[in-house]
Design a protein around this nucleic acid. Sequence first.
DNA 1: ATTTTACTTCAAGTATACTTGAAGTGTTAC
DNA 2: GTAACACTTCAAGTATACTTGAAGTAAAAT
Lengths: 142, 142
Amino acid sequence: MKTTTVKTYSITEVSKMYHLPTTTLRYYEDLGLLYDIPRLKGRRAYTQQHLNRLGAICCFKDTGMTLKELQELFEAQDDDANLDKTCEILDNHYQRVLEQLALLEKNERHIKRKVRFYHDIKTAKENHSKMPNWEDYRDREF
Amino acid sequence: MKTTTVKTYSITEVSKMYHLPTTTLRYYEDLGLLYDIPRLKGRRAYTQQHLNRLGAICCFKDTGMTLKELQELFEAQDDDANLDKTCEILDNHYQRVLEQLALLEKNERHIKRKVRFYHDIKTAKENHSKMPNWEDYRDREF
DNA sequence: ATTTTACTTCAAGTATACTTGAAGTGTTAC
DNA sequence: GTAACACTTCAAGTATACTTGAAGTAAAAT
């Protein structure tokens, strides 16, 4: 007979690993995003499967998916019959991520210009030199 | 005597230009993020200054700044004495944006792999060929 | 002239994602 | 033994960012 002990993690360990409060981990479980978490002496014992899923939750949540959409995705993913729906959700979400990326890159450039502009104002004020003009910072690469 | 007519925009025009409901534009005004909007016959008439500020609101909000933080930023920005605070807020926010960008890029790669994985499962099922293994999709560039 | 349209103000309501509080249990520290 | 600690469940509360509803106004359309 073969006995294998599976490495598990307490809720506090998982909380630290994923930078999520323990309350949030319980909340995700309430929503069904995480399930079948075994209990050792009444305490949650997360396995590698749960960590993998939690990684997916963070990835999708951080890219703007709502918890409700995540429920739908996992529902489709955990049901082999719903491959089409899984692909559809993933494809749609990937498109949204590409849009977010383009927008974030645009906004990053804008904020970079603004940072530089205000630092130059500060320098100009300190040196009593000519004040910069925002127009000179628009659409210009530094 | 010189008379100049300044081009203004109605709330519906602004709503369409910035893809924000009119109610949200009024809400931002209530919060003081937009102010001194002139009224023509009781209706809001946004000037270019207001559009510029609204552009900034969208940029900062889309990069995760809360409306409260935006209030602080504008408060510091509109007060010449607070150049240091303006720079501090902008610097801190820019750091957060760079972190977001790195995270979003990482998440984009992960989701791209997942999209490809599920499409390959679908193809394999249709062709009755060998099922792909997620391990082959981890940390691999396509 | 009166109805429709497009606003206006102000207060109250809602959605999402947690977060907190109360009461209880089982191992560990003194 | 008993107190402290680290959890447990379940219900209720909170923060942020809107969103909706009610009542009113002013100009345009019929």
